[in-house]
């Protein structure tokens, strides 16, 4: 994929607007899995090196999000199995264990004093989902 192609795709698939500064440092666009591997309006977990990443196909909003799979609360590998939704306009995921909710944009915890989670940019190209990492 050439870089113009890539930028077009980013514009189309990243209305979530991950902070540009964070985006510029992206070095790796990891080809994760075909679009069909991610249920509509739900998530699935992918492995990148040793990292577990939760990827959400928020088809209702025509948006994609990715964040760490580990819930900071009780350190459970569970966020990909959480329900997604919105609080106002903020897209969020709820941990299945104790329902801590986290913004999929900023990673901040919305309903408790929990540590933030890391979020990663996502783009879709030729039916494949790519996650951006800085290494």
């Amino acid at each position: 994929m050439n870089s113009i192609d890539m930028m077009l795709q980013e514009a189309a698939n990243d209305p979530a607007g991950t902070a540009p500064s964070a985006r510029e440092e992206i070095r790796t666009w990891f080809r994760a899995a075909p679009v069909a591997a991610f249920p509509e309006n739900g998530g699935a977990c992918i492995r990148y090196k040793n990292l577990q990443v939760a990827v959400f196909n928020f088809s209702r909003r025509k948006e994609w999000y990715a964040c760490q799979n580990l819930c900071p609360h009780k350190k459970q590998m569970a966020l990909s199995r959480g329900l997604i939704g919105s609080a106002g306009d903020e897209p969020k995921v709820a941990c299945p264990f104790h329902k801590r909710t986290f913004s999929l944009r900023s990673g901040g915890c919305l309903n408790a004093a929990e540590e933030s989670i890391s979020v990663f940019p996502v783009k879709v190209h030729d039916g494949y989902v790519y996650i951006g990492f800085r290494d």
């Binding site: 928020f58 209702r60 959480g82 329900l83 939704g85 919105s86 609080a87 909710t101």
Partner: peptide, 19 residues
């Protein structure tokens, strides 16, 4: 669910109304 949300709800749902 999606039909109900489109016709009688707003926003994108959440962990309370979905289940």
């Amino acid at each position: 669910y999606e039909t109900l949300l489109d016709t009688h709800g707003k926003g994108d749902g959440c962990e309370v109304c979905k289940p």
